[in-house]
Write a protein that binds this DNA or RNA. Structure first.
Lengths: 236, 236
DNA sequence: GCAAAAGTGTTGAGCTTACACCCATGA
DNA sequence: TCATGGGTGTAAGCTCAACACTTTTGC
């Protein structure tokens, strides 16, 4: 009988090793249409298994950092990115995720702003891909990305997540484009703008976006809070 | 640079050990009002730290079982229960969850039917508590339970989870009582029944619940699917 | 018959949706 | 001045919440 989740010295078999991975989303204009689409940075496998294939950035957590910090560090090390939004996705621990040793991966998902994404480190072994056009990936990473996409869609549909894919100032039409890219369907501009203006987290500024072809749209800011990591108890 | 979530041999420090815990919910009639309320089984700590305090059932996963199977086994070993519903809750991995060694806990949450719950093993070291009246718990387990309660409330409000707390046959009023217990507010019986009858997953039977004080209500069944664990990829 | 829960009907408020329309700007 | 996206108005339709009402049982 095991009476605690925090004492593992009570069983013989070695528990499976742990790794942290992150699915990172950013917006980039599509090469064809120019409209914003979702992109994901991947890193190339430099050893077996799956040598040469693309995979999610990840690695083992160190003993002295929280899981979320591990995801952050990892993300900075591989891609140079500092995410605007970072949330735990799921812990994957199936027996056959990896040939050879079995690994438990705690996966995070992140949103980065386009300014960040633009100056992200890209190299021989780090490349960005359109989220809907990935090739063959290592391990179960395609499956993980599909799950992350589902979560993103869900969070966008309800919550206040879309703004983390945009810069500090944005037009309401830009927000709509994010929704349209993520949900993959068109939305009524008139009704969408009304809905956003009803939300108190979106505040109007007195700036306008200049340089467009037509009437310059007003810029807005998002003032909502990022949402807390549940892995923090109030009684330390 | 760490190119994979499934290869941990690339870093020096030993990763933190892993444990699985489960928050188990079942309905029992309240001693005072007789109306159904949420109860949770806990196990007593039989060693330091937190010796003597109550804690969530849990233990290390073995190397040869999936995380969900580990939660299931664990649950059977400690409480004798076979849950009707089992879903991953969150991976808790803060640095200060446990005095002494740092542990990462992947926590599941479960719903068991009242028949199961009634014949659950109870002993000196395993007891059931009202979810809203727990004493001091070991580790961050109170915090975890609060989070699980939030998830349960959310899933009940939207989804099709309430039926897993009931037996195979149930009246619509019983479903309403579950909602009322979980959400902690009263619901309009007329509107609630209409909403349920609109759902195709709830099918009418030709049985009636006899033995009540008044008009015998019709019994219904739930035909929905349990919802899949995301930790299963389709390409094996 | 009476009390109480099972079960049905109805109505108004409010929100969503579709779309007509005006506004401001670059070319 | 015209094309285009920014931005506003509005009416139909639907959903939801409140509550009056009928039905069926045990006592």
């Amino acid at each position: 009988m095991y009476a605690s989740s925090a004492n593992i010295s009570e069983r013989q078999a070695a528990p499976p090793p742990l790794a942290i991975s992150t699915v990172i989303f950013a917006l980039r204009p599509s090469e064809s249409s120019g409209r914003p689409t979702l992109w994901i940075p991947l890193v190339r496998r430099i050893r077996e298994p799956f040598l040469g294939l693309w995979a999610l950035p990840g690695g083992p957590p160190s003993a002295v950092e929280s899981l979320q910090d591990a995801a952050s560090r990892n993300l900075a090390e591989t891609t140079g990115l500092a995410p605007e939004y970072l949330e735990q996705l799921y812990a994957f621990g199936g027996l056959h995720r990896s040939p050879g040793q079995r690994v438990v991966s705690i996966v995070y998902w992140a949103l980065v702003q386009p300014t960040e994404a633009a100056m992200a480190a890209e190299s021989e072994n780090v490349k960005w891909f359109r989220a809907d056009r990935l090739g063959d990936l290592a391990f179960d990473h395609q499956h993980i990305i599909d799950y992350a996409l589902g979560r993103l869609r869900n969070k966008v549909a309800y919550g206040s997540v879309a703004y983390h894919l945009l810069g500090e100032y944005f037009t309401l039409a830009q927000v709509r484009e994010v929704y349209e890219a993520v949900l993959d369907r068109e939305l009524d501009p008139a009704n969408f703008r009304r809905e956003l203006k009803a939300s108190p987290e979106i505040v109007e500024t007195d700036k306008y976006l200049q340089g467009g072809k037509h009437r310059p749209p007003r810029l807005y800011r998002f003032t909502g809070l990022p949402g807390l990591d549940p892995d923090n108890r109030s009684t330390p």
